[in-house]
Amino acid sequence: MAENEKIIEIEVLRYRPEQDKEPVLQTYKVPFTDDMSVLQGLQYIKDYLDGTVSFRWSCRMAICGSCGMMIDGKPKLSCKTFLRDYYPGGLRVEALAHLPIERDLVVDATDFVTKLESIKPYIIPKEPRALEQGEYLQTPQQRDMYEQFSSCINCMLCYAACPQYGLNPKFTGPGILALMHRYNADSRDGGQAERNELGYADEGYWGCTAVGYCSEVCPKGVDPANAINQNKMNSAINYFTRFVTPGGAGK
């Protein structure tokens, strides 16, 4: 460590199912330099202070979506958050809110993954196309319709931010509804009717009360609140016109 090193106190929410009845806080004094992220602080703890602390991480550069946690009560990627911003005070890191804790800072993502699979997060071609017909063409304007929503890295920060998901985990939630919009809004896709059966339900777009914190915490600039609001409009139009539009009533 450099000579100008400072010490910061990191409180970590521990939960070791074999010994803790409920999560408890444990404080570590961590020497740090100005270029160190919260993730690096945790790695210091694991390497030098307490090898039993568990947390997920992989890329260290805000693209894998593994290291999301509550940092002083706000959902953040720990690799994109710097210790210097909390000094001279300390900081508290906890597992992502609204999700069951598996161990320490590791949450159980089963619900998220199951929901993600259920929305068919892939392009369902409008019409089948033979190889010799070439690729599906798309204009830049058509791409702009969905591009920002395709930046999602599945980090679940928006799930920790969403009060509706916290109240009712049956709600599909911001990130996955934004991804649903990403595919529905793609000019090459024809899967809207299949996906909107969920979208038009109470568990879909209508579970949202437009709080908007999801869009604020997204580390990739995705705006799930906007995706949901656009689809509330689509869903409402479909609700009132479904009996006069061919195929509007869905399956």
């Binding site: 059966e197 038009y200 339900a201 109470d202 879909g204 209508w206 409402a236 609700y239």
Partner: peptide
């Protein structure tokens, strides 16, 4: 999934 009646409100 049941279609929501929320669009009315």
């Amino acid at each position: 999934m049941k279609r929501s009646n929320e669009p009315i409100f």
